[in-house]
Design a protein around this nucleic acid. Structure first.
Length: 746
DNA sequence: TCTCTCACTTC
DNA sequence: TGAAGTGAGAG
């Protein structure tokens, strides 16, 4: 068995440790452990912290490094390694001492989100892209000040239903349309130190939502590496389906280089109140009004603004004429002056002559609660900057912390002072009706290090422990309620995930499924200017969306939409009644954190699910029913577990001919314990983690690992290598690409 | 439902 | 001053 011939490495290039070549570390480690001389090693140019670069989990890295060093000391011939790669690099690959972090994320402008959540959850999407409103802003804490982090967000389907707005409420209208290609938005300031992140509100306001399937604001990740396979793209907009429900996610990745993302640990945070239904036109007036009143760009439509005045003018013009005529008849005079004055008190910025015909009394009749504030606000507006003023609707879209602007006072929207009905969502989703339930973002971490390792629990207690934390968080008043619910799925703690997880819908019959996460990378254009590895990555991006390499219909369930809808309704309706049951979409993410093979719909894909507009039909089959995720239908199912990363490597099931297929069992039987064995594949992000007792699952785990190192992938690796070379050459020319594409379609 | 234009806004 | 972000409304 040749361990190295399939592993071309260009001497002296940074490609040697490019994360697109994830097999580097395992190959190297395995070959050393097995006593093989690793010919590629001399070419291996280690970064300052090579182990981190490869995201070799510390728990694994250490024993492997011990193995390597030990092997070297006991006679493994490293003599031919060459001058550029002495034994020292081995030491260099040892994981750095890292300050443990325990990130907590606080959703900013939460009051606004709460209002948004209560009154409906519509988010407008347009062909040209529309910003999110409310803006997604978070404040982080608990980060390692000195460590660098990459912050990302993406938007995933919250369920697999299509909705309609009927009788002033959102209702399930059938099965979801084929999922759009997902993108992930990398905060333009990434990577930055924890201190930097914690010093400010992290805002994603530049993220745009579109329904344009041919959107050109996405770019492929430049690699044929199986971790990406053209499925991942980045750009400035993310594509959503209208009338579908979505859930934004926030990710914290401890990595100092964007290129390390695929092999880094993702901590994922969900804020249920940020869930929304994408629409091309507002359906719910309450949401419209909420946005008008809180979005500075929509100021023109406020009752205090000219735009809204125009509308009102038309509405009141007729009645005014009647009023004036009647008034003239009654008084015998034309009291235009007083009328005009009163009008101006309401519309200080009036410019249309027609305004003067609007009478105060009529105005109040039409909008009694607003007339006073209109006058007051108008009088202040020209002299007072936008502040949190009870007399004025605050603009929580400002960059200032919500503690200032998002206070209840700020959101004391007199237009909505009396919240009456309108809880259509509450009707549809009782679980969301509980304010407490919204205050506990779910944190899903696939941490391979840190506290997670200490949080091992007995399998049966995992779910309850999670719930306990959730309840704990809910019980905490005020800000404490925002402490994320952490669900460390430490890969090393394999056992604690075994068995049924109350509240986690483990689907039966999923063994052997490969976890696929079809989330293209969504990168802010600002990344292009960041230099370093960011530029390297960006350089290779073609101005194309991900193309397709065969949509999968794996994991399809034959459930019809009716059953699905009822199942979903049951999940949505009942989940909130049980603390042991996470909301539907949370379960999906929890499952994802467990490494279950799920599409954004929750379907399971044995092969990479790739996106293409024309392939939507194929994926429609893949948009399987939600029954597998249903907490009551699959509550006690047991699943082998995969490490979760948004960038899981989709891998075909191998025939066991690869390196690790042989190496890992050898290791397991030898010096490395099962924990290390399981972790060995974690750099590939998709290593199946079984729970310890399921030998069959372990077999599949090893198979999964094998493929990531199989000779079949060598060509991909080569391609990635050469591509990366060209990327480096093209680094400087990239920034203009997205701009061109944008300006090209005015 | 969706798309486009428009008037209006902020920055 | 102009680019870009808004919802309304027509088609």
């Amino acid at each position: 068995m040749s361990l190295s011939m399939r592993d071309p490495v260009i001497p002296g290039t940074s490609m040697a440790y490019h994360p697109f070549l994830p097999h580097r570390a395992p190959d190297f480690a395995m070959s050393a452990v097995l006593g093989h001389q690793p010919p590629f090693f001399p070419a291996l140019t280690l970064p300052p912290n090579g182990a981190t670069a490869l995201s070799l989990p510390g728990a694994l890295a250490k024993p492997i490094m011990d193995q390597l060093v030990g092997a070297a000391e006991t006679g493994i011939p490293f003599s031919s390694l060459g001058p550029q790669a002495p034994l020292r690099p081995l030491k260099a690959m040892e994981p750095e001492e890292e300050v443990e972090d325990d990130p907590k994320v606080h959703l900013e402008a939460k009051e606004l989100w709460d209002q948004f959540h209560k009154r409906g959850t519509e988010m407008v999407i347009t062909k040209s892209g529309r910003r999110m409103f409310p803006p997604f802003k978070v404040r982080c804490s608990g980060l390692d000040k000195k460590a660098k982090y990459i912050l990302l967000m993406d938007i995933i389907a919250a369920d697999d239903c299509r909705y309609k707005f009927h009788n002033s409420r959102w209702m399930v209208a059938g099965k979801a349309d084929p999922e759009m290609p997902k993108r992930m938005y990398i905060h333009p300031d990434s990577p930055a130190t924890g201190e930097q992140w914690m010093s400010k509100v992290v805002t994603f306001h530049k993220l745009k939502l579109t329904n344009n399937i041919s959107d050109k604001h996405g770019f492929n990740w430049p690699s044929d590496h199986p971790a990406w396979q053209g499925n991942y793209s980045f750009g400035t907009q993310t594509i959503l389906n209208s009338m579908h429900k979505y859930q934004p996610r926030f990710h914290i990745v401890r990595a100092n280089d964007i290129l390390k993302l695929p092999y880094s640990t993702f901590r994922t945070y969900l804020f249920p109140e940020t869930e929304f239904i994408a629409v091309t036109a507002y359906q719910n007036d309450k949401i419209t009004q909420l946005k008008i009143d809180n979005n500075p760009f929509a100021k023109g439509f406020r009752d205090t603004g000219n735009g809204r005045r125009e509308k009102r003018k038309q509405l009141t013009l007729q009645s005014m004429r009647v009023f004036d005529e009647r008034h003239k008849k009654e008084t015998g005079t034309s009291d235009e002056s007083s009328s005009e004055h009163a009008t101006f008190s309401c519309f200080a910025q009036a410019s249309s002559p027609a305004v003067s015909t609007v009478g105060t009394s009529n105005l109040k009749d039409l909008c009694p609660s607003e007339a006073e504030s209109d006058a007051e606000a108008e009088s202040k507006e020209e002299h007072v900057p936008e502040t949190c003023d009870a007399a004025k609707i605050s603009t929580t879209t400002s960059e200032e912390p919500s503690r200032d602007k998002g206070s209840p006072d700020c959101l004391k929207l007199h237009l909505f002072g009396a919240e009456t009905s309108g809880r259509s969502r509450d009707n549809a989703r009782p679980d969301k009706a509980s304010p407490d339930s919204r205050h506990s973002p779910a944190t899903i971490s696939s941490s391979t290090r840190g506290p997670g390792a200490e949080e091992r629990r007995s399998p049966g207690r995992e779910g309850s422990a999670v719930v306990a934390k959730a309840e704990e968080a809910r019980a905490l008043p005020g800000k404490e309620a925002f402490v994320p619910l952490h669900m460390h799925s430490d890969a090393a703690a394999a056992a604690h995930l075994q068995g049924p997880l109350p509240g986690l819908g483990f689907a039966p019959g999923l063994a052997g499924q490969q976890f696929f996460n079809g989330h293209p990378l969504f990168l802010h254009p600002g990344q292009f200017a960041m230099g370093s590895a960011f530029s390297s990555m960006a350089a290779g991006m073609g101005p194309l969306l991900a193309t397709v390499s065969g949509a999968s219909s794996g994991g399809v369930s034959g459930l019809d939409s009716t059953a699905m809808a009822s199942a979903a309704a049951a999940a949505q309706g009942l989940s909130g009644t049980s603390a042991a049951t996470l909301p539907f979409h949370l379960q999906q993410h929890v499952l994802a954190s467990q490494g279950l093979a799920m599409s954004p719909f929750g379907s399971l894909f044995p092969y990479p699910y790739t996106y293409m507009a024309a392939a939507a039909a194929a994926s429609s089959a893949a948009a399987s029913s939600s029954v597998h995720r249903h907490p009551f239908l699959s509550l006690n199912s047991m699943r082998p577990r995969l490490r979760y990363s948004p960038y899981s490597i989709p891998v075909p099931v191998p025939d066991g001919g690869g390196l690790l297929g042989a190496a890992l069992p050898a290791m397991a039987a030898g010096t490395l314990d099962a924990k290390a064995t399981a972790l060995a594949a974690s750099p590939a992000s998709v290593s199946a983690m079984d729970s310890g007792s399921e030998l069959n699952s372990r077999s599949s785990t090893l198979s999964s690992i094998t493929v990531s190192l199989s000779p079949k992938l060598c060509s991909e690796k080569e391609a990635a290598t050469s591509e990366l070379q060209s990327i480096q050459r093209l680094v400087s020319g990239l920034e203009a690409k997205p701009e061109r594409s944008r300006s090209g379609s005015p």
